[in-house]
Nucleic acid binder design. Structure first.
Lengths: 237, 237
DNA sequence: TCGTCAAATCCTGTATACAAGAAGTTTGAC
DNA sequence: GTCAAACTTCTTGTATACAGGATTTGACGA
């Protein structure tokens, strides 16, 4: 796995990335509906544990039960919904334990992205990453965490692409999305935004200088902080 | 992430593991049907690129199109099937490039399992792993690769559990299943079985002595070999 | 002979109907 | 008054019907 991918040129936007054809969970089928429900789960409009009545959802979204069921199955596959046979669907309840486990895997995957990015990324991509980092500067004072959250997500997504491993990119993006509400809360912890911004700087440098081990370690720590400082996070819920 | 999980006691069998409630893709809904189709895909009865006609499948499995559709959506979420809107489903075509990418991620995840196992596993679990390794001995001469394949899978699954990270265990098991047909082929490469067996021995030792870095490195190499020596594998197709 | 266009056919996506199981309620007995 | 059992109601899981888009087939023209 040391060869450089021939065609790193991706025209995908960050909001609608060109996914690999095998992208897990990227079922392009009545996608708007899935995304609408997903949005309500991610934003906590539909709280964890809430029952997802098929008939009720069907009425609310003005469709029949069939597409609702199919959407719920997709969301269950993504881990956002729990399907209890013959007893209906509920919004998945994530325990602190599970959350820590997920952050742990996330840290490992991002670390690997960093390692591969340091090994394979082009100068052009590195400039792009730096630009994304610098774009965060204005909102790194912690006054507008939502804006920083968005730009931070952008920064990481560029990093994923730089791994030149579309499968890895897809897996880590899925996890990023799934952890979204918790990452968002995390940024409200005191000083987290400014620290995050500083850490990004070192990450950019490590990748630019091709320091694979350092890039991996920095990214692992960068993500793990969110998992370890977990008391703060749970307290803010 | 250095704390040890309090309850490592798992009564799950290897064939039907007790999955975490958030287990991605573990939608327990008409599961037999999903598994039957999955089996045909994994065993190449349904070859990559083959059209999956809903009506035809419905007739063949003696159900209506509805459960078939729901099964296909689940399989698409798992990456085994590609759903092309309004144009039907086909068995996912995995390019060598994608396969290498998947093996790369697999190597990283298994390496992390090894690291965590070295850190957290109990003496009891380590004995279990050793037993699973020793059970491979009889079929490590390469004369019965299918039997070794099964025992090898068992060995790795015990390892996953030893990470004490149910989410990681689930993710890596999914990938293991998805790469199954290719791993199977890999074992037919000359000397691979005997080498694999020897590598397991070092892995067991590294974990037993709590050497996290070594366990991770050994496992990474152990898996990467399968991805890297891919030329041999493709030639055998 | 090959390419193009059109009609017919097929298949998917969605709605709806129905049956079976789960949950909730009421009634009866102790 | 409390507990249990049976009944009612609700919800899920599956079958089926139908509409609209995709594909295929056939004919016509270059």
């Amino acid at each position: 796995m040391t060869t450089i991918k021939p065609t790193p040129v991706s025209t995908a936007t960050l909001d609608q990335p060109a996914r690999a054809p095998l992208a897990p969970g990227s079922v392009r089928l009545s996608q708007p509906l899935v995304e609408r429900i997903e949005e309500e789960i991610v934003t906590r409009q539909l709280a964890p544990g809430a029952r997802l009545d098929e008939t009720e959802l069907a009425q609310r979204f003005a469709v029949s039960r069939t597409p609702i069921r199919e959407a719920l199955i997709q969301l269950a596959s993504a881990g956002l919904v729990e399907l209890r046979p013959r007893r209906g669907a509920i919004v998945a309840q994530v325990t602190p334990q599970q959350l820590m486990e997920m952050f742990d895997v996330m840290a490992e995957l991002e670390a690997h992205c960093g390692r591969l990015a340091a090994r394979r990324s082009t100068a052009e991509e590195q400039r792009e990453l730096l630009a994304a980092h610098e774009a965060c500067a204005d909102s790194s004072n912690g006054l507008d965490p939502d804006r920083y959250f968005y730009l931070n997500e952008r920064f990481h997504q560029i990093l994923y692409r730089m791994s030149h491993n579309a499968f890895l990119e897809d897996q880590v993006r899925h996890l990023q999305r799934r952890l979204r509400p918790y990452r968002r809360l995390q940024l409200r912890v005191r000083q987290r935004v400014s620290h995050s911004f500083l850490e990004h700087r070192s990450i950019v440098d490590a990748i630019a200088t091709g320091n694979e081990a350092l890039a991996a370690d920095l990214l692992r720590s960068h993500i793990q902080i969110q998992g370890e400082r977990f008391g703060d996070l749970m307290a803010s819920l």
